[in-house]
């Protein structure tokens, strides 16, 4: 992985915030020497190995690759469908109930699944810390110093613009 470069998501949406937070946490935890920035000459999120041209453009697969955790779960499917739609459309109020009633099945250790779910829920509900902390695993994870650093970095490079929810 020595020739890896990582360009962040230059967007201004909740989805961009979620994408950047996912890869920021994964790099802090698993590849701390891999810095990433929003580059104007890059079209969007991209992990690239300059040695062989290998590329990934999708945040969840980047997290899985960096953590070497390719397991799947119903929680991940929930993130890739329900949470993704809310991130893309901005209609977060509609999923608040689904989130409150959901029982996530995270293990004791940090996993790709936890990083991905946390980042999306954080992007959607960072203004509602009570909701975020109602999930014990999120509360503990958010308190980790490296996660705090990743949040700080993400917020410094991602400017979310308010927009009307899309139908």
């Amino acid at each position: 992985m020595s020739k890896l470069t990582l360009a962040g998501d230059c967007g201004t949406s909740l989805l961009a915030l979620s994408n950047n937070l996912k890869v920021a946490i994964a790099t802090k935890l698993y590849k701390p020497d891999l810095d990433f920035q929003n580059k104007e000459d890059e079209s969007g999120l991209k992990l690239r190995n300059n040695a062989d041209g290998f590329e990934l453009l999708e945040a969840n697969s980047i997290v899985k690759y960096l953590s070497n955790d390719f397991s799947t779960s119903e929680d991940l499917e929930f993130e890739e469908t329900v949470l993704f739609s809310a991130l893309k459309s901005g209609k977060k109020d509609e999923i608040e109930g689904a989130l409150k009633s959901r029982n996530f099945s995270f293990g004791k250790d940090v996993s790709a699944s936890l990083i991905i779910l946390f980042a999306s829920v954080y992007a959607l509900f960072k203004d509602k810390p009570d909701l975020l902390e109602s999930v014990a695993a999120f509360k503990q994870f958010q308190a980790l110093p490296k996660v705090q650093e990743a949040i700080k970095k993400t917020l410094s490079i991602t400017k979310v613009e308010r927009s009307l929810p899309k139908n």
Binding site: L56, S61, K64, Y65, F70, T72, E80, T81
Partner: peptide, 15 residues
């Protein structure tokens, strides 16, 4: 790398 590409495609298809 191949597992990551597989994961990426499955994620796209979930959407």
């Amino acid at each position: 790398e191949e597992k990551a590409l597989a994961s990426q495609a499955v994620t796209y298809s979930n959407r």
